[in-house]
Design a binder for these strands. Structure first.
Length: 573
RNA sequence: GCCCCAGUAGCUCAGUGGAGAGAGCGGCCGCCUCCUAAGCGGUAGGUCGCAGGUUCGAUUCCUGCCUGGGGCGCCA
């Protein structure tokens, strides 16, 4: 299904052809208008082509506008020339009514596209070290990764969610040493993990395996216990991984050794100071990197190259990694190693690494020091103890991952009612309630094909349809840019329009024709809200409790407790 | 020193090669006999970090600089 921009772009190209101006479609821009009086969409074609056609832009625009209606029949009510030579298009209400029928027909899949149709995509995200619970900041990758997966799936991809489990490195050794120390009733080593969870885990371990289990037992038990903890945390926020990929398994199957041999065979390695190095500098990196340490162990890089080769060999059409910006330095090294293996060519595209800026955790405006080893952490589970998963998720999906996010625990928890998630969910609950009331009153919604939508002429009504009309394009763009926050922005706008419609356009009236059309419009809006929320991994409740009934407004004022918060530090005289 | 990201309203952030730059929160003023007031309306608040460049047109693209965040390990 073509988007509006595409439809209007093609119409513009055709109209220009009528004028004897031949121009490839990709050189014609049709964009949403910024101001209502400029219509719904606008093209700057006349401005851009004026020079080559040797015609004043305004004149060219006039000629274009004269021809355009032939090609936009049924879509635009009118077109007009404005400003220095823009051609503004005003969508026809009848066309918007057609959008409503499309939405209802498509249901939950409305707006989905085919940009990734048939592609098998491996999406790796989170992949936090299995040494403790998920950190609150890591929630960003949980929410973003899952939403990106949903976005790609909505474009027809078969998405495989994968968690890379670093169960072979020194971090796990340190974790095991810390666990054993707790088991003995001692403090973990200075560079170990000091979190409280290890004390509790040691108790569990003791109950199951006694005071002095074999170190290998401790290791296996500890790893399994942490993975179970990670899975449980992820389940609480509704995220499920298809594969938990063990780094250790790469070693066990000899894949790391294979990769090292292949790199040596390719002549891109050398020995120095007892270590094996990769000529990564010649392959696009800023410097050479160690693959095998002088003690014979392999580096994270060597293992990661083997891991990605494994993913390629599993037959995916495309690999995507979502990493925090603190892993930025690894990208060039990994790609250098993969290139040497022939991965990163036209036949075998290199992995796409999405870097997201980090979360700055604050409590009441003050930076929270984060150190998993010191045990001074705020975990995702801590957050979920205080807010529901929907609020947590949407908070992480409010802004572009290109910007560092400030996550104030106090704001997100104590003032959670201000979370935009409730604004959107409330819009869904409100619009849903209309259907319930209609049913209770015995108002029957006639079949859509028997409903005359021509009565939907109010700007509030048309605004809803304009939003819904733009949704396929929003989804396609968000998927292409791997930017789920664009869906958040869109659904917040739709929710605002739903609230305004609700306020100004009464659905259940004495006029059966109007009631029928508005019931269907409400249904279309509900489908739009629910569909976008589903992409974001947020639930769309049919009903929500009213917070405050009657006149005790103070009870519902979320900022009421703010005053004591200031005094909590002991400033009260 | 080099690489990546950001700098937009008091705060948190959207957004765009175009026509007086938007939202939420916070401030102020209003709106519930009516489908849920977790809502709606109004008002105040901006040299889109700074300087050049490209362009008919730059907050948007390019370069430099400043500020902030993250990297550049025989850690992961």
């Amino acid at each position: 299904m073509a988007t509006i921009s595409e439809l209007l772009r093609d119409a513009t190209v055709a109209a220009l052809a009528d004028l004897g101006v031949s121009v490839p479609p990709e050189q014609v821009e049709v964009t949403p208008a910024q101001r209502r009086e400029h219509g719904d969409y606008q093209t700057n074609a006349a401005l851009r082509l004026a020079r080559t056609v040797a015609c004043p832009p305004r004149d060219l625009a006039e000629r274009l506008a004269a021809r355009l209606p032939e090609h936009t029949a049924g879509i635009c009510a009118r077109v007009e020339v404005a400003g220095p030579g823009f051609v503004n298009c005003f969508l026809a209400p009848a066309w918007l009514h057609g959008v409503l029928r499309e939405v209802v027909a498509a249901g939950p899949d409305y707006g989905h596209g085919t940009a990734e149709a048939g592609r098998r995509i491996n999406l790796e995200f989170v992949s936090a070290n299995p040494t403790g619970p998920l950190h609150a900041g890591g929630g960003r990758w949980v929410a973003v990764g899952d939403a990106v997966a949903n976005l790609l799936a909505a474009q027809g991809a078969q998405v495989h969610r994968e968690y890379y489990l670093n169960d072979a490195g020194t971090q796990l050794d340190t974790f095991v040493a810390s666990l054993r120390a707790r088991l003995r009733g001692e403090e973990p080593p200075p560079d170990g993990y000091h979190g409280r969870y290890l004390v509790e885990m040691a108790e569990e371990l003791r109950a199951e395996h006694g005071d002095d289990p074999d170190p290998e037992v401790v290791r296996a038990w500890g790893l399994a216990r942490v993975v179970a903890m990670l899975e449980a945390d992820l389940a609480r926020i509704g995220v499920h991984f298809d594969t938990w990929f063990s780094e250790q398994s790469l070693h066990d199957r000899g894949e790391v050794a294979e990769v090292l041999a292949a790199l040596a065979q390719a002549g891109v390695t050398y020995e120095r100071d007892g270590a094996v190095w990769l000529h990564s500098r010649d392959l696009g990196d800023t410097r050479d990197r160690v693959l095998v340490r002088s003690d014979g162990t392999t580096t994270y890089l060597a293992n990661d190259i083997a891991y990605h080769r494994n993913k390629v060999r599993r037959g995916f059409d495309h690999l995507i990694d979502i990493w925090g910006a603190d892993h930025h330095g690894q990208v060039a090294s990994l790609q250098a190693g993969l290139r040497a293996l022939g991965i990163g060519t036209a036949e075998s595209p290199e992995p796409e690494v999405i870097l997201g800026q980090l979360v700055r955790l604050e409590r009441g405006g003050e930076l929270v020091r984060i150190s998993k080893r010191a045990g001074d952490v705020i975990t995702l589970a801590d957050i979920l103890d205080e807010v529901d998963p929907d609020a947590a998720r949407l908070t992480f999906l409010l802004q572009s991952i290109d910007t560092p996010q400030t996550f104030d625990v106090e704001v997100v928890t104590s003032a959670s009612l201000e979370n935009p998630v409730y604004y959107v969910q409330y819009a869904h609950a409100r619009i849903s309630s209309i259907g319930r009331v209609a049913a209770a009153r015995g108002v029957v919604r006639p079949p859509l094909e028997d409903t005359d939508l021509g009565v939907l002429t109010d700007e509030r009504e048309l605004d809803l349809l304009r939003s819904l009309a733009a949704y396929p394009e929003v989804l396609a763009t968000a998927a292409a840019l791997r930017a789920p926050h664009r869906v958040t922005t869109w659904v917040r706008e739709l929710a605002a329009r739903v609230h305004r419609f609700y306020r100004d356009c009464r659905v259940l009236t004495d006029d059966p024709a109007r009631t029928a059309a508005r019931l269907w419009l409400a249904e279309a809006a509900r489908v739009g809200l629910a569909g976008a929320l589903r992409i974001l991994g947020v639930s769309a409740p049919e009903r929500m409790e009213r917070l405050d009934d009657g006149d005790d407004d103070a009870a519902g004022a979320p900022d009421a407790p703010a005053a004591p918060a200031a005094g909590a530090s002991g400033s009260r005289p």
